[in-house]
């Protein structure tokens, strides 16, 4: 299946000002050349440590962040400069779920008005139709009609997160960017929200860009995973490729650090973790260029690319066709 949306060589650089005339002296390369393709009904994971630029990537795609260079192509059209136009289809079809549900909702608005906002923006509905749609949406997220007249603070964290999802799906979007949607939630509530996100995906054929630092959750949710470091992808590939056959030292290190709920094997894991840490210190220079930047991606197989420099590349059979 071909992709419906494409991000090409996305860059977001923030200027650092300083010196005598407050001129631009340098840039922070928050996102530095990221390319992705999105297919219908799939979930794409974006993983990285804090500060790696994963949230900025999400925000740049939806238009909350200015893009320095690069292109976003949506259904064959270049939408890079019309992401925030009120009447653009892009703006309607791409929605976002935020990490902190509390601060992403206006505390002075009722749930009714919060969920109705995208509907009022993008759809021509009468008041009755709008009401019906809202009740429908609340039903989808498993809440009763009375919730409409309450305020965000009257809900628990998990419920609020579900309201955030209801708002995001209000206009039948094609894709939802979920920025750490469950990292503020307790385990059982997290399970609830994740189950629910999968349900609506199956029902409406949504795509997700799932941004998270929790590899366990990403593994549960995603089909395709990209690992980010310093604004670039170090490795991108299908879930199995990444977890079973990680190639980049950074990915290996990240995977070895995930806690596992099997206490019997924890000493093995600890030794392995130490080993990887030693390898990381020793071989780090091979994986990053002189400025400590990540090399460009080169593909290992049809759905697995890794950022390895020229020295290492020889060791692998690098297939030239980039998927």
């Amino acid at each position: 299946m071909s992709s419906f949306m494409e991000v090409k060589d996305l860059c977001v650089h923030y200027p650092i000002r300083g010196g005598f005339f407050n001129t631009v002296i340098d840039h922070v390369y928050a996102v530095d050349g990221v390319s992705m393709e999105f297919e219908k009904g799939k979930t794409y994971g974006l993983v990285g440590e804090s500060g790696s630029g994963k949230s900025t990537t999400g925000k740049a795609i939806i238009g909350l962040e200015k893009i320095t260079s690069g292109k976003i192509i949506y259904e064959g059209e270049d939408v890079t400069h019309q992401r925030r136009k009120r009447d653009s289809a892009y703006n309607r079809d791409i929605q976002m779920i935020f990490q902190d549900s509390q601060s992403s909702m206006n505390p002075r608005k009722r749930v009714l008005d919060i969920i109705a906002e995208p509907i009022r923006n993008f759809m021509n509905m009468t008041v009755q139709e709008e009401r019906k749609r809202i009740i429908e949406l609340l039903e989808i997220v498993g809440m009763s009609e009375e919730a409409m007249y309450k305020y965000p603070h009257q809900f628990s964290g998990g419920q609020r997160q579900r309201l955030g999802i209801a708002r995001a799906v209000a206009c039948n979007p094609k894709m939802i960017i979920a920025d750490e949607p469950v990292s503020a939630l307790d385990l059982s509530v997290q399970a609830q929200v994740l189950n629910f996100m999968k349900d609506i995906q199956n029902e409406y054929g949504l795509s997700y860009l799932f941004i998270s630092h929790d590899l366990g959750v990403v593994r549960h949710m995603c089909d395709h995973i990209s690992i980010m470091y310093k604004g670039r992808f170090v490795e991108t590939g299908s879930k199995n490729e990444i977890f079973k056959d990680p190639r980049h030292i950074y990915t290996k290190r990240l995977l070895s650090a995930i806690p596992n709920i099997a206490p019997e094997s924890r000493l093995e894991r600890k030794h392995k973790r130490r080993q990887v840490e030693v390898d990381y210190k020793k071989e780090q220079h091979k994986y990053y260029d002189e400025d400590g930047k990540v090399y460009p991606l080169s593909s290992v197989s049809s759905n697995h690319s890794v950022a390895i420099g020229s020295i290492e590349k020889g060791g692998y059979e690098s297939v030239e066709n980039n998927s």
Binding site: S156, V217, R219
Partner: peptide, 24 residues
């Protein structure tokens, strides 16, 4: 048991996660 079962795990990748009804 419910808590342990609500953790996303490798062996049960595609399965639904266990949800505990209600809240604390």
């Amino acid at each position: 048991r419910s808590l342990l079962n609500s953790i996303p795990q490798v062996e049960r990748e595609s399965e639904k996660l266990e949800v505990i009804q209600g809240i604390v």
